[in-house]
């Protein structure tokens, strides 16, 4: 895989999968635009990147209406994008009996609405070059279900079908749209989720992954594959990276 000279914007770059993705993209030669809410965490991500062609932007994606304008400003300053990775996301384990519309809407806003507005921003003239590639971070929870994950799985399932519709809508503009659907990867987000489970329940969940839990690099590899020319005939797909979780 080769990404030399490509400019790629990565949201959620202060999270574990986002950070690993930015590191891999930089190793493959890309210039990475690192986006997240936490400036301090973004600085740490920046320090771990190969090369010095990278940029950091602190931006809160929940301001969805501002996304297209903000992307214009960013690319006006640094040049048009070749790729976009939306790895920012909210995870929320909530049984129905305690679900609130407020937490549901916050989750949908970052996981789904921001994904749509990032695509809206990306396709604008001057923001991306021909042959651009968008990759969303979905989840196996968007393909199969799990108790107490209804909001999260609804949002990740939305990304699977959003990917298909945008692939069709943007094919005429020479933009590919795909998503990656990982199962349980060892990250801060999954650590928080695993705290909700007893050691016995964690063993049970790991046993549902024939190849065990994944590493952030496993997901980053799939993202890079879809961004690079290795994925040039792939659009509208959700690449499942799950250690066999959904094979049952």
């Amino acid at each position: 895989m080769e990404l030399s000279g490509r400019r790629i914007l990565v949201t959620g770059a202060s999270s574990r999968i986002g950070r690993e993705t930015t590191i891999l993209l930089s190793l493959l030669g890309a210039s990475v635009i690192v986006v997240g809410r936490n400036a301090e965490q973004l600085g740490i991500t920046l320090l771990s990147l190969e090369g010095n062609l990278h940029h950091v932007y602190a931006f809160d994606l929940s301001n969805v209406d501002e996304i297209p304008r903000w992307m214009k400003d960013v690319t006006y300053a640094i040049g048009p994008l070749h790729g976009l990775v939306h790895s920012a996301g909210v995870q929320c384990t909530r049984p129905l009996r305690i679900m609130s519309s407020e937490s549901l809407e916050e989750l949908m806003r970052v996981n789904v609405t921001a994904a749509i507005f990032l695509a809206k921003g990306f396709r604008q003239k001057g923001v991306s070059v021909a042959g651009g590639s968008i990759v969303y971070l979905s989840s196996v929870m968007g393909l199969v279900g799990q108790s107490a994950q209804s909001a999260y799985s609804a949002s990740k399932g939305a990304l699977v079908t959003l990917t298909k519709s945008l692939a069709l809508e943007l094919s005429g503009e020479n933009i590919r749209v795909n998503s990656v659907a990982p199962a349980m990867v060892r990250t801060e987000m999954s650590k928080k989720m695993l705290q909700l489970l007893t050691p016995e329940q964690i063993i049970q969940i790991e046993a549902m992954h024939p190849l065990g839990f994944g590493q952030p690099r496993d997901v980053a590899n799939a993202i890079a594959f879809l961004l690079a020319d290795t994925g040039k005939w792939i659009t509208g797909t959700s690449l499942v990276v799950d250690g066999g979780y959904t094979s049952r």
């Binding site: 049984p95 305690i98 909700l196």
Partner: peptide, 14 residues
Amino acid sequence: DSLAVLTFIAMVDE
């Protein structure tokens, strides 16, 4: 049950 435990944890968190 396990779902009530998750509900309780979420309630305490909120």
